[in-house]
């Protein structure tokens, strides 16, 4: 089976029933995307498929139709995406385990809505659970990322 992740096409031998999350983490060893709940309740597994935010724990490989971008493909420590740069400046992360998913949801939101209100952010990001409750900084960082993207 062929999957395209972060611009690279892989031939993988995997059960088409397997959700994309496990193919990323345990077949391709792309561990930036996290397992938190497995039932679309936490958002830790959020990736983009053709630019849309998707819960990868719910997408079976056999149903995958499009190019996948993971947190590793969004930006790198040496080449940050604007959302990641804002996340770093606001020091959003506590334990950090949810933050790949938060960043991916925020990046997807900003592609659809260049200057979201607090309410837009709440609506788009409430599916991303943060057990450490970093929410005030998440809100601030999304606004900041929007400004950075507008300025670039």
């Amino acid at each position: 089976m062929q999957v395209t992740v972060n611009g690279q096409t892989h031939d993988i031998d995997a059960d088409p029933q397997m959700p994309l999350l496990w193919a990323l983490r345990e077949v391709l060893n792309l561990t930036g995307t996290k397992y938190g709940c497995g039932i679309a309740q936490c958002g830790a597994c959020t990736v983009h498929v053709d630019g849309m935010a998707v819960r990868s724990c719910q997408l079976r490989l056999g149903d995958l139709n499009g190019e996948v971008t993971t947190i590793e493909g969004l930006g790198q420590p040496q080449a940050l995406h604007a959302v990641q740069a804002a996340w770093i400046d606001h020091q959003v992360a506590q334990c950090g385990y949810c933050q790949s998913g938060q960043v991916m949801s925020a990046a997807a939101l900003l592609m659809l809505n260049a200057s979201p209100t607090d309410q837009d952010i709440d609506r788009a990001m409430s599916g991303n659970l943060c057990r450490c409750a970093t929410y005030p900084r998440i809100r601030a960082a999304v606004h900041d990322a929007a400004r950075r993207l507008a300025g670039s």
Binding site: T33, G75, Q91, Y97
Partner: peptide
């Protein structure tokens, strides 16, 4: 201070126990 782990935790490059391969 910028916490030492903040870049890794914002880019998916922090390795947690579950990420060990």
């Amino acid at each position: 201070m910028r916490r030492g782990d903040i870049v890794a935790k914002s880019t998916g490059t922090q390795v947690y126990g579950a990420d060990l391969r």
